[in-house]
Write a protein that binds this DNA or RNA. Sequence first.
DNA 1: CCGTACTGGATAGCACTGGTATCCATAAGG
DNA 2: CCTTATGGATACCAGTGCTATCCAGTACGG
Lengths: 222, 222
Amino acid sequence: MSVMRIAELSERAGVPIPTIKYYLREGLLPRGEATGRNQASYGAEHLSRLRLVRALTTVGGLSVATVRTVLDEVGGPGVGLHSQLGLVMRRLPLVGADIEPQDRDRERARELVARHGWFFYPDHPALEALAVVLAGHREAGHPVSDADLDRYAGAVEAFAEIDLDRLDGLPEGEDVLEGAVVKTVLGDTLITVLRRLAQIDESAQRNLGEDERRARREMREG
Amino acid sequence: MSVMRIAELSERAGVPIPTIKYYLREGLLPRGEATGRNQASYGAEHLSRLRLVRALTTVGGLSVATVRTVLDEVGGPGVGLHSQLGLVMRRLPLVGADIEPQDRDRERARELVARHGWFFYPDHPALEALAVVLAGHREAGHPVSDADLDRYAGAVEAFAEIDLDRLDGLPEGEDVLEGAVVKTVLGDTLITVLRRLAQIDESAQRNLGEDERRARREMREG
DNA sequence: CCGTACTGGATAGCACTGGTATCCATAAGG
DNA sequence: CCTTATGGATACCAGTGCTATCCAGTACGG
């Protein structure tokens, strides 16, 4: 049951055999245990790893190359959870640059972090990414005001607290790091989707007439 | 100064001429005003449109095809801001599916919306997207609990409020819709980046010794 | 008013990503 | 023992986002 060959692995994960072979080639999935010149057996860990890879690429939007480097790092040596987590997080792409921020954008990024008293590493890619995003808004003709930025920053602190609580809640074991990656990467998508749903509600509350809302509420409850 | 040919447009937007021609072909950028059989002039609106397209693709991560359909919709007829905004938002991709959620995932998605009293459209893609994200977490071996989901949902309401405030703050004019798109699309990236920065802070607070934090604080202030 | 440079526009090609398809010698299994 | 499946290597393929080439026609410095 927990030992299988490639056909069953494919069947159970819902991933075609050629794709599995591709992931093996690319090192996203460890090779099965060789039981002969051309025979290998895969276990439950291969199945879960395969599902993990799929979730990270399809839902999380990570590229195959990113998944490889991130999971390599996760399985790496490790000199303490906090620092290892930091290393892994640096691997996650934030923006597909191609926009060069101005000094002012970088300055605003640093100022924001300072205003909120956030701990930071001066050379962290997230800081540069923030500058890029600010530049993007500006270039798009819709700059972000410091006031809006501060409101977002305040709201985002709630997320970070939830995120870390979730991490602390994980059973002290081997895959805390993997959990952190999944919760961060898929969490980005989750937050995006939830934000859209909340926008719909907020927009409806502000723009629809009361009777229209009531009708819809009744329709839902009825 | 505000009338130019392609070379100047390219220069000022920092986008190569062949790329501009490509965007023209793909309909992301309207053709310039023809002044002869093979001569056209571009204005300030082309420049800003070009920068907008670039920001949406590079920072927002939208595909060229998505940018086209979204901007087409923005420039379309329109029967009231609220409903038109709704139409545009439906065009924005949320997840690159490929994972089929189970009924239970869809059920949890609906329950979440109900628990929070959110207004919703039963067939809205965001609802299905939420189910997909829940399925992704589950398949990745790290399911999201309802408790965590509720915490996220609560936090996300703050975003929606900020988002709508920002929209209301826009000058009642032609590009409210464009503003909504930019603020939503680039806002996703902005929130992702801010979340990462806040995570770093929260993680440091929980995992670094007090003296290490103080040293770093002094380094920053000094 | 002429030669060179540049234009808009069309068509073809290219690098990269994420797979598929094919082939092969070998093992499994009824 | 003969069909089928396997692991592994190599080749191929479709989609995306450009980039290069070509062309007839215009601009413009000298």
